[in-house]
Design a protein around this nucleic acid. Structure first.
Length: 292
DNA sequence: AATAAGAACAACCGCACAAAC
DNA sequence: GGTTTGTGCGGTTGTTCTTAT
């Protein structure tokens, strides 16, 4: 089951070309998914000799893989502290916050989520977040999309975390430690386990739907605005569990959502893929997004 | 039950940078 | 000071799994 990519990479990271043909050793390299045996060899070798010098390691361990491939396999999969499974709401909150600040600095973001790899976070972002940006028909880097994240998803994640834990929003923000706004400095090693606090800006924004418990928010109350316009029609959440809004492709107001008494989920794709339940998205969200 | 479509995940690629030579 | 080598990062793509039809 080989992946069959075009260019080859030699054991020393060299790319092959007509001027630089692959050596016999290069030709013998394996690619594609790792086998259980290979995993065992790699794990045993690292257990005995430690990490580092990946190209050397690959050779010495007898693995017909590039050092790069070994390193990737170890870091993303075999490392004992790699945490697998669904991204939790707390982690999602962190990812949203950190990405809004640092952009696609996946490894930097991953440092704030112990046990998570940059690859995993990157995949999460691409499969979940970017998908929804596409459905909202806006660029993932657009202000509109960022506002939706900041004023909609993050408050809901906080609510969800609170509901699950019984914590106050303030406690949630203290626990979900993320770097300060405007701080481009990497967290100091050893300082609070390399973690800092959620930005005040985000805290207040994320508290938008928590104002009943004392958090400040300058924008209009979502529910109030919505009920003024569309009183009573708030049952439209889908079952998307990832905390990311979900809308009908191609427009803000799907017919099915507007039909009185209709099933507000009709026509909405179901994005419940995660482990945590009901959706965070509703007709209300659609209205709010239009305000951005 | 079969199959198509979409989502999620794993792995590779190219590039950049730093250290070693 | 230039070249080689090793490593890390972000982007991309192939494969597998899940869900819908």
């Amino acid at each position: 089951m080989e992946m069959g990519r075009g260019l080859g990479v030699g054991v020393h990271g060299r790319t092959w070309s007509s001027a630089n043909p692959p050596t016999e050793e290069d030709m013998d390299l394996r690619r594609g998914p790792w086998t259980v045996d290979e995993d065992l060899v790699l794990m045993n070798y690292i257990a005995a000799h430690g990490e580092g010098r990946w190209n050397c390691l690959a050779r010495c361990a007898g693995l017909k893989r590039t050092g790069k491939s070994c390193r990737l396999r170890w870091l993303n999969y075999l490392r004992p502290d790699v945490r697998r499974g669904n991204i939790t709401p707390e982690e999602q909150l962190l990812i949203l916050e950190l990405h809004s600040r640092w952009g696609n600095r996946w490894s930097k973001i991953a440092q704030q989520l112990p046990g998570r790899t940059d690859n995993e976070i990157k995949n999460y972002w691409r499969t979940r977040v970017q998908k929804h940006a596409k459905q909202l028909q806006c660029d993932v880097n657009s202000k509109q999309f960022k506002d939706v994240m900041r004023y909609l998803w993050m408050p809901r994640l906080v609510e969800r975390i609170r509901a699950a834990s019984g914590s106050s929003p303030a406690a949630i923000y203290q626990n979900a430690s993320v770097p300060m706004a405007g701080s481009e400095q990497p967290a100091e090693p050893g300082s609070e386990a390399g973690q800092v606090k959620l930005s005040p800006e985000t805290s207040s924004a994320a508290g938008s739907s928590l104002d009943s418990v004392g958090m400040q928010f300058s924008s209009p109350r979502i529910s109030d605005c919505f009920s003024e316009c569309y009183g009573g029609m708030q049952g439209g959440e889908n079952r998307n569990g990832d905390g990311i809004p979900d809308v009908q492709i191609g427009g803000w107001w799907p017919e099915s959502l507007l039909s009185p008494g209709g099933n507000s989920n009709q026509g909405l794709p179901d994005f419940e893929q995660g482990a945590w339940g009901e959706s965070l998205w509703s007709v209300e969200d659609t209205w709010l997004q239009q305000q951005f």
